[in-house]
Design a protein around this nucleic acid. Structure first.
Length: 663
DNA sequence: TAACTCGGACTTTCAAGAGT
DNA sequence: CTCTTGAAAGTCCGAGTTAT
């Protein structure tokens, strides 16, 4: 049985059955009879036209082959070739929302799937028209605790009096998402306009779900926006959405005081992913990717790697890396199509980041041919205003050579940064500081930076709020710079070899002179420390920031360990910043907790070493009395802060919402 | 020679603007 | 509000190519 079919004559996602075909002649379709009833070809070649000249919508297989489709489901060609017969709604004529005019709710919108009364089931053009199984059996999937119906009113009061096509056609192309009633979707907020109702306290599951969107989603924005996710979940859009929900619940539980439920949520999410009969689809990839990120941040890297291997395997198996995937599986819903594109690219970026920071995996997806469309801007995704024109990586690579002045999304620059990371990882081993390979990779990094449009140069978007995608893009590039130059720099990493929470220690012999590689390394490390000062809670960043801060700390500590450090006070401040950020991150991510402990311990060791050096009068040659006292005091100050931080840190539980939200 | 590919003619649909 | 216009999205004919 078609899992998306609806009962009771509800609109179908698929084409009409063959028994309906007599009535489903395309000429029946409203408003098209005149032009299709007397086509030239049939008038001249068929004296008794029994078959329609053309159907309102051809299936994807026929469309792709430029062949006539009979409009049945399955069509005769798909039947004879024994292939899947898929229909997607037409987007013809649609050119995006009207400019500068408010949406008139009384006028139907073409791409919102015109709700022709009584004809939906007959017209393949309307495929996807809300035709989903409304029976969400959460209990069957072991998720009895979460019932969207409790928190999702069927319709807001306003929508009863003024029926919006969106409430009846929720899954269709909808460029006017402002018309969507967010109050009918908010998980815990009361209905607008209604008298305040004493809402029942949210359950733990609901709080985890909210925490996921509040803290995590911006860092890895591939899951559907909250409103869309809830609506589709409620309508039973796809069984595997329940697996995504389980994974989201696990991620959300990391940010709140979920107690032993956290482990249960993780087990449940993994169990659902691997239970027999689970179909491999985009939702499964999303769920796995969430779990992978969670496990990686919780120091369970071996398990994360196992799941990552499976996830990549499945993604390629279902053609997630192909351009058509979004269209074929998007059911005509541009937000869902965008979600599929984002799922591929976030998997790509995460694969790169995991390989980059842990240096165990190889960034497998870097070598996989992919022609997936590029994601749009975050605000467009969240509001459902998906641009009609999808750009591709070749467009990005052609910029600068073509006359067109295109703007690419922040997510695109993040992908490009990850791609540079992949290119760096594929470079042959560098034997000497003047190796041209290093110059080539540095050119990539510099090109990435100098070709950023003005609006993307910092991590703030137009509203002066943090642009997390650009934030990640920048830190990926800084991390690349450190990984590229540090091995050739003057900085000896021996004193910081104990800091191995993110990646195994790589010995870097101390160079004799301060060289350009040292400068690149120090600048990148300083830039990372500067990123910590963004006016947003550090826990709202992706947990991969932990490893980048750790990388920066290794550089700072290596420098601090040098016999003589220029501008030591500034360096101490940067180390303090890094340790502070790791401490904050440790409230959510266990990996940060480990890194924090290690960085602090190494800082302490270096301090002791410096104290030992200070005993020798030779150390103070060239210092004035004042400089000497200042240096000693600063060292004492920073160490007492480390000690205090350690004492406080022991009292901090791992992940208490109250603490996180205080930041 | 059958099967397949795909350029391109033609159709459908829409947003936007002009006219009433 | 209707009509017109321009353009995007779509169907599928049929010429050319490839496989059997």
């Amino acid at each position: 049985m078609d899992p998306y079919a609806t009962a009771g004559g509800a609109p179908q996602l698929t084409a009409p059955s063959s028994s309906d075909s007599a009535n489903s002649s395309p000429s029946v379709s409203t408003g098209t009879a005149t032009s299709t009833a007397t086509p030239i070809s049939s008038a001249t070649t068929e004296p008794h036209p029994v078959a329609p000249a053309s159907v309102p919508a051809a299936c994807l297989a026929c469309r792709g082959k430029h062949l006539k489709c009979d409009g049945n489901n399955p069509c005769s060609r798909c039947t004879s070739s024994n292939t899947e017969c898929l229909y997607v709604p037409s987007r013809r004529g649609y050119k995006g929302p009207r400019r500068g005019t408010a949406h008139n709710p009384n006028k139907r919108h073409a791409s919102s799937s015109p709700p022709y009364p009584g004809t939906e089931g007959d017209c393949p053009m309307l495929l996807g028209h809300g035709g989903v199984n409304v029976n969400v059996n959460l209990t069957a999937s072991g998720l009895a605790g979460f019932n969207p119906a409790i928190v999702l009113p069927e319709q807001s009061p306003a929508s009863y009096t003024n029926p919006s096509p969106l409430t009846s056609v929720p899954l269709y192309r909808n460029p006017f998402v402002n018309a969507m009633d967010p109050n009918g979707l908010a998980l815990t907020s009361a209905t607008a306009g209604a008298p305040p109702v004493q809402a029942p306290p949210p359950t733990l599951e609901q709080r985890c779900f909210d925490a996921f969107y509040h803290f995590f989603h911006a860092g890895h924005p591939f899951v559907l926006p909250k409103e869309y996710f809830l609506r589709m979940l409620k309508e039973g859009f796809a069984p595997n959405m329940n697996i995504v929900l389980a994974a989201m619940r696990y991620i959300g539980s990391l940010y709140i005081d979920a107690g032993p439920a956290r482990a249960t949520y993780l087990d449940e999410a993994i169990r659902l992913c691997y239970q027999p009969g689970t179909t491999k689809d985009g939702f499964l990839i999303q769920a796995l990717l969430l779990i992978i990120i969670g496990l990686d941040g919780q120091c369970n890297q071996p398990r994360a790697r196992e799941l990552l291997a499976d996830c990549e395997h499945y993604a390629i198996e279902i053609d997630l890396n192909k351009r058509d995937f979004a269209t074929i599986h998007g059911r005509g819903n541009p937000v869902l199509e965008e979600s599929w594109r984002r799922t591929w690219w976030d998997l790509y970026v995460c694969d790169g980041m995991i390989a980059g920071v842990h240096r165990v995996t190889k960034f497998l997806l870097f070598d996989i041919q992919a022609d997936v469309g590029l994601p749009c801007e975050e605000q467009q995704y969240l509001t459902g205003r998906i641009p009609t024109q999808t750009l591709y990586m070749e467009d990005f690579d052609d910029q600068g050579f073509s006359d067109e002045d295109r703007e690419f999304s922040s997510f695109t620059y993040r992908i490009a940064a990850a791609r540079n990371l992949g290119r760096m990882m594929r470079m042959p081993p560098v034997m000497f500081p003047d190796d041209s390979t290093v110059d080539r990779v540095q050119s990539l990094l510099t090109n990435w930076r100098i070709h950023l449009p003005d609006s993307k140069r910092d991590d703030l978007n137009k509203n002066c709020t943090l642009d997390e995608m650009m934030f990640q893009a920048h830190f990926i590039t800084h991390a690349c710079t450190i990984m590229l130059h540090q091995p050739l720099s003057q900085l000896d990493t021996t004193p910081v070899q104990a800091v191995n929470s993110c990646a195994p220690h790589r010995p870097v012999p101390s160079g004799d002179v301060f060289n350009a590689h040292t400068r690149h390394t120090l600048t990148a490390a300083a830039e990372i420390s500067k990123m910590i000062t963004q006016a947003v809670p550090v826990t709202q960043h992706t947990h991969f920031f932990t490893c980048v801060v750790t990388l920066s700390s290794i550089v700072h500590l290596s420098r601090w360990a040098l016999y003589f450090v220029d501008d030591e006070d500034h360096l101490r401040q940067q180390i303090r910043l890094n340790i502070g950020a790791l401490r904050k991150l440790s409230r959510v991510w266990k990996a940060a907790d480990t890194a924090w402990t290690q960085v602090r311990a190494v800082a302490h060791d270096i301090y002791r070493e410096k104290k030992a050096q200070q005993i020798s009068p030779a150390f103070w040659v060239g210092f004035t009395q004042e400089q000497m006292m200042s240096s000693i005091n600063a060292d004492e100050g920073i160490m007492s802060e480390f000690q205090n931080a350690a004492a406080n840190g022991a009292a901090v539980g791992s992940g208490v919402m109250g603490r996180v939200s205080q930041e």
